[in-house]
Every structure is written in C-alpha cells, then in structure tokens.
Nucleic acid binder design. Structure first.
Ligand SMILES: [Mn+2]
Ligand SMILES: [Mn+2]
Ligand SMILES: [Zn+2]
Ligand SMILES: [Zn+2]
Lengths: 143, 143
DNA sequence: TGCTAAATGAAAAATATTATCATTTACATG
DNA sequence: CATGTAAATGATAATATTTTTCATTTAGCA
C-alpha cells in the first residue's frame, strides 16, 4: 500500500519537520502521480497552481522526503534523480520506459543471493538496488 | 573476465570508431582501475600525464564506450554517473561504499522473477538493474 | 602520400544543484 | 488567542555538470 498524503504529513511532523503548505503541495504532486518525477517536473506541475513556490523548496522537500524514505529514488528510467511515492515495506520497482509508470513489487527475497555473495566476495553487504524496466500494458498496445 | 584495453580497441574499430590516442588514454584509465570513476575523476587521472586532453573528450568517449557496453554505468555508489570496465557476459555489481571497488558477479538468474512479474503486472520486461552495496574486506578492517 | 570524414579542444551556452541571507511563518507555549 | 522563536521560504547568486558550436587537427583508407 502506497503512502498517503496524510500518513506522510504525520511522519514529517513526528520527525520535527513543519507541515508547510509548500510541502503539502509537493507531497500532493508526488502522491497523485503514478509516474516518477524529477525535481523540475514537480516544479512545473506545482507551479501552475502555486506560482510562488520556488524550485529550491522542491529540492529541499525532496531531500527530506527521501531521507525519511517517504519517497523512492529511481535510476532505471531516464533521469537518475526522479522520485516516486514509497510504501512502508521493503520493495522494488518495475518501470515503464515509455510512460514512466512505476509498479512496486515485493515478495522476492534477495537474502540468499546476498549470503552467497557475501561469502564469496568477503563483502559485508548493506543494501541493494533492483529495478526492472519495460513497457506497461497500455504502452505495449500504443504505437 | 574483464575486457582488456586491446579487446576494447578492436571493438571500437569494428564499429567504425577511430582509435585515437585520447581514447586509448581514457580506456587505459578505466581498465587500470578497480574503482568506478566519474567523468571528472577520469579527467583528473588522465590530465596528469596528458594535460591537453579536454574534459569534453572524456564525456564523448564515455558515451561511445557505454553505448557499445564496453563500460558499465553504476548507480548505487555515490554518483549516478560513474563507470567501470565491463565484462562480455551479463553480470551485476557489488560495490564498496568506502573505496569504490567494484566486483562483478554472475550466475544469479532473474528470469524466474522476471516471468512472475511479467505475468502479474502485464509488463513486457526489457531489462533490469541490480547492484549490491557494502564494504569490501579491506574497508571492514580499516576504521 | 594525400584525402576526407571523424575527432578534438577551446570556448561558450545550457542545465542542474547548492549556498547565502533577509523575510516570513508554523506551531509550541502560556 | 496572542506571542516568541526556530525553522522554512524565496530571491538571488554561486557552483557544478553537461552539451553545443566551430575552427583546427588527425586516423585511417585509397
Ligand atoms: Mn517504491
Ligand atoms: Mn560490470
Ligand atoms: Zn507505459
Ligand atoms: Zn572498500
């Protein structure tokens, strides 16, 4: 289940961040999209209804949201600095290279592989990045 | 087996690219490092012995090498625009977050997962990105 | 050895990101 | 509800990164 605007607001406040109208607008922009969005794209989206919100505020808000893991950064589709709304549990992403739609998936466990790798390479493994890229059903049909 | 300087040169020429001294120097810089390197880092490395090679040439060379899949772009360790030498077969990466060392690994098959995802999501899956991040043995010992 | 398309480097332009600082404001407190 | 204060904002400038442009050079072929 993806995080709601409301849930994000609560977590922000729990961490001592103020719930400003600007932040609410940015959060709204992200949660209302299936897509993954760059800072510039969020700015444009937001700018239409709120022309006084600056790009800097977008950057600052994204940094906080990412730090708290309320949004996920994506790498495989286009820009390496684009974000999508997060979900509480550990998950990975499936991205449409055409329309940008992001689908979360879970249930695949990398810990076996992680153990094997750790043993073979002598690395202490701290995390991983797994994204699939492809075409969503709608984009397969379209020309 | 990682690609050698020689092998890369051959492939470049096979694709109609000229084997300029500048390109050879850039390739040398990448193949001689275990690390993953940003364009700026490659420039610095190269600049010491070849102060007349411009940063633009680095960018242009990296673009070609990446296009031909002779180098791999990495995302999980620091910059999203850093490269390491490639290997011919399909593989993934294990990256030390401290020293930047990149270890290739292979043998893990994502196609089962890919099929499951494809069926569940109705996506046509074209590719994936899998990187592990951690600490190499040397960096675990160091403070 | 010369020709030519491709490559290079210098410079500028375009983008992207971060820092600075005066002003505004969310929200805790009484 | 008014007030104080630390946090947040926006304007602007600074910095960093990447791409274009174009005159000059050169790798590789005939
Ligand atoms: Mn996600
Ligand atoms: Mn590799
Ligand atoms: Zn799509
Ligand atoms: Zn290390």
């Amino acid at each position: 289940m993806r995080l709601t605007k409301r849930k994000i607001a609560t977590i922000l406040r729990q961490h001592g961040y103020k719930l400003t109208p600007q932040r609410q607008v940015v959060i709204q922009a992200i949660t209302s999209s299936q897509d993954h969005l760059t800072p510039a794209a969020i700015y444009e989206k937001v700018h239409q209804d709120h022309p006084n919100i600056g790009l800097v505020t977008i950057y600052r808000t994204l940094e906080i949201l990412a730090e708290l893991e309320l949004i996920c950064k994506l790498h495989a589709g286009g820009s390496c600095r684009s974000y999508t709304i997060s979900t509480p549990q550990h998950h990975h992403h499936l991205i449409c290279s055409n329309c940008g739609t992001v689908v979360d998936f879970t249930g695949h466990n990398l810990s076996d592989l992680e153990q094997r790798l750790s043993k073979e390479s002598r690395f202490r493994i701290d995390g991983h990045l797994l994204e699939f890229i492809g075409l969503c059903q709608a984009c397969q049909k379209a020309p």
